[in-house]
Amino acid sequence: MFNKFTIATVVAALFAVMTATTASAQEGSFVLKRIMERGVINMGHREASVPFAYIKDGKPQGYSIDLCNKFIEKIKATLKMPSLKVKHVAVTSQTRLALIANGTIDMECGSTTNNLTRQKQVDYLPVTFITGTKLASKKGSGITEIEDMNGKVIALSQGTTNEKAVKRIMKAQGIKIKIVNVKDHPQAWLALTSGRVDAYATDDVLLYGLISKSKNPDQWQVTGRFLSYDPYGLMVPRNDSTYRRIGTILLADLMRSGEMLEIYNKWFNPGPTNINMPISDTLSTAFVIQALPH
């Protein structure tokens, strides 16, 4: 009864059903399709964003990297392809957008602010960290708020959201501050410690990181109110809601179960670099709000 033809038909039908389930997982998702074709997930990561994503012992690690690794596990589970390889691609603040746009990386794990302008080019997973612009200065310099900087010199990183915030406040309040442009955080820190500038304005978490690594941590202080609001999120390619939803589900689950807080404490309280930042009220509220039910 069961001739070769029937067996072949059944096998073919079974195969079709199996591929259909896999296909439904990646239906309409160009990123998942790409990952299946390549057999590789490309993870873009920053190299010196302590403690979000940095190189230690030759491997990227940090808060964002931990979250990305969980995201990758979830992708493997969704596609039922546990043998997918992971490739690490180092990115900088100048290359991250273009590498997402040209399809080189499938996610960016670092410390990228989620804002509406950027959403014209990329999408973000839910907010995983909240920070804002503050000032770092020498203890005893008499600087606490941005208003104290009148007539003094400040370092700002080119093109950052922090630069935008400080310039807006200067304009609104008519404060006169001399601005020295710097390329990146280490150069800014060098400008501050060598006396070229009186203060450096950037995300407070980064300032704490810089101080914890400096030669004399007790000489420096982070002061003032938040001058801007900078929510961080993992960056993913735009217009792929199927793919993005995998991340949204993952983060909601982590936040609901409290695992998110554990990961946070692992890196920030006190964290391997001794950064010592207990979770803020805003961030723990954000975790509660984003823990959407199934």
Binding site: E47, V91, T95, K213
Partner: peptide, 23 residues
């Protein structure tokens, strides 16, 4: 260095940044 490839200068830069020893 603009594309983050670890050549000699960029490697030195990574160490300089992580140890805060730019000079």
């Amino acid at each position: 260095y603009v594309v983050g490839l670890s050549d000699f200068l960029y490697s030195a830069d990574i160490i300089a940044n992580s140890e805060n020893r730019l000079m």
